[in-house]
Nucleic acid binder design. Structure first.
Lengths: 219, 219, 219, 219
DNA sequence: GATGAATGAGGATTCATTCAT
DNA sequence: GATGAATGAATCCTCATTCAT
């Protein structure tokens, strides 16, 4: 049955997106058919085509919908500002937020994995990938700006190699998120705050001197 | 037609597997058709069915074929043995091997991603998944055994929390591998040996005391 | 919204028919969707369904709309009347009108082809076909009547076989119209008046005698 | 059931093409689905895709298959040769062949109409159209060469405008074929030989002088 | 061992049509 | 009068799989 008010239509649209999210997450993009999505949403395939141009647009929409949650950048961006007196604390709190129940669920969701896969080329759609690369690059830049701010505020030594430090931070966070998805990560969450502090502490040791010494070792 | 020798048959089999690896890596499992594989290998679809039961068996075989390289466990297992006097050095060298050209290519390949996806359930095949979970769990155990060995040999302090240390190690390695797949990882490879040393050094600080303090903080 | 006046409605109706004509002509009946027509006319699909029962009715209407132009019968019918003293001249002028720019465009239009196709059964709609057969038969009769009139007025010899002459005339006109649609008809238009005169002149030679001789040759 | 010898396969292929011809002819290209064709041929849709790339290739093949019959060019081409002493007779015989039972059936078949439609853009496929335009142009050239040959051999006066004469001939033939498809053409076939002779005779009158006079009349 | 032929289920997409508003 | 939303059947096409040869 057709919905006849604008509100009804929005409900239908949402139902379709929700189904798509659920099913893409569960089975991946390719293995989910529009039939499945329609059935799950309680509409016909035609309804999907009323709201979206094609299957691809569905996932594009889902990406837009989850940008904010995915990045939760507000807190991070604050830490890049000159007016923030304690950027290290901001950073630390943002990191710690990653072991809140909600975040864990998100990172463990297959949808997050799906997004990663898009980025990494399992779902080859140029537009989607470009979008994703932008997001990741943006975050990298934010990390860099925070480290710089910490140096400026005296929370990290002047001789810290900011590029390498930001990189090390990303490795750690990527490692956490990626390990989170593994089966046996009960301890990980419990000890996460310790790992965060160790890692942040480590940053002090990533100095220009060390970096140049190590680089020279490698060809 | 030339008489088919056993050798010829093995060549065909290998060609099929090679094609499958290449194409699965490039486009993912679902998006690669048996036609594609056959064409790429220069055989007919029928030939695939002579050598393999179905598409699924192809990937199963590929997993078997790449186990060794993927884990490169020999070196690691050596580090778990009581007779090894310098387990930390073994571990360090195994870690450093991850930034050799060959390894990087492997980790950046979509096939590796594919394996990860199998493990994480995007490719839903029970047998495959079970296999993969075993592999990962096995490695975790190895890490643990090495850390223990290091403690035993006096390379790490007695009060190190071996579970947490092993976990931290995995987070780091997962983070490295996962970041490697991102677009901008040129710096990462250059600085990797530094990060390895920092991380190994860090392990000393992961003591029972710290772990219990932090755990008690979290609810 | 402005109040809808009857005039507005007629405008919409016209816009729809115009779009339909243009698009049917350009791409044919099957390949033109109601969506296309609606978009081209700047209305919604629903609007089409307000004015017309279905897609079929659109083309039916178009046929009605183009009857007059298609046949341009006034001039021809005049030539059948006893009171017309120069039926041959009427006929000639009507024929020559076929190489006016407007006519040429019409005959070259795919819409004209579409009408032919309806007639010939490529578009299977009984009502449409019946209508079309009537039109063509009507014209045949007019040709016949003109030839008879010419004989009566002494513009053609008494012994002309009127049936055959009318037929020859139709062959010529069909040939002209059909060749017009071919790619290389620039010369055709230039020489058309010559061909018309030659053909009209030829009619004199289509005598009962010749017809019976030739018919007897064929089994 | 799959066919297992090469011969069987050719039978299947032929069955598909035959069905396609029959159904395209009956209902047109767009209105005929591959399902219909498969059902009619007693195979599955998949079988069609084994033998042909897509629907479009089916019609392309059909065109190739009917080229010879359509053009029946052997006889015509003979008439263009210098060594042929009676080109006019050749031409005349070729024309007369158009009222043999077999030819009539072909021209009346909807498949022939379908070919015309392809040419005229109802089925818009660039490759198909290009092919068709070539065929038509080729025939036009043949007509021209024959007329020239007739002049050379003294069968037509020197002052005949060969271009215009060839054109007039095509108009006549097109008119015949096109009228043949009309419903009421019983007389046409009977009188065709007469019309042919009249028309051929007419060619003598299409002189350079007349052509230039008429052209000057028109703007 | 390997091929060529064929199957049949399922996929994305289009589109005429309906109807509450 | 006209719209926006939705339906559902049909269409072209892909692909894993089967099997006689």
């Amino acid at each position: 049955m057709a919905r006849h008010t604008h509100e009804d239509a929005q409900k239908t649209r949402k139902a379709i997106l929700d189904s798509a999210l659920r099913l893409f997450s569960r089975r991946g993009y390719e293995r989910t058919s529009l039939s499945d999505i329609a059935k799950y949403a309680g509409v016909t395939r035609g309804a999907i085509y009323w709201h979206f141009d094609d299957k691809r647009e569905l996932i594009l929409e889902l990406c837009n919908r989850t940008d904010c949650e995915f990045l939760a950048t507000d807190q991070l961006i604050a830490a890049t500002k000159p007016e923030e007196d304690n950027p290290l604390k901001c950073l630390r709190e943002w990191m710690l937020a990653h072991c809140e129940e909600k975040s864990i669920q998100y990172f463990r969701s297959s949808f997050f994995l799906l997004l990663c896969n898009i980025f990494r080329g399992m779902v080859d759609d140029d537009q989607l990938q470009k979008r994703f690369v932008e997001l990741v690059e943006a975050r990298r830049q934010i990390f860099l700006d925070i480290i710089k701010n910490c140096v400026r505020k005296g929370q990290l030594p002047k001789n810290v190699d900011v590029q390498a430090a930001a990189e090390y931070l990303m490795v750690f966070m990527n490692g956490y998120v990626s390990s989170l998805r593994a089966a046996f990560s009960s301890g990980l969450v419990n000890n996460f705050s310790l790992y965060v502090d160790l890692t942040l502490n480590q940053l002090k040791g990533i100095t220009h001197e060390l970096v140049s010494v190590h680089s020279s070792v490698r060809v």
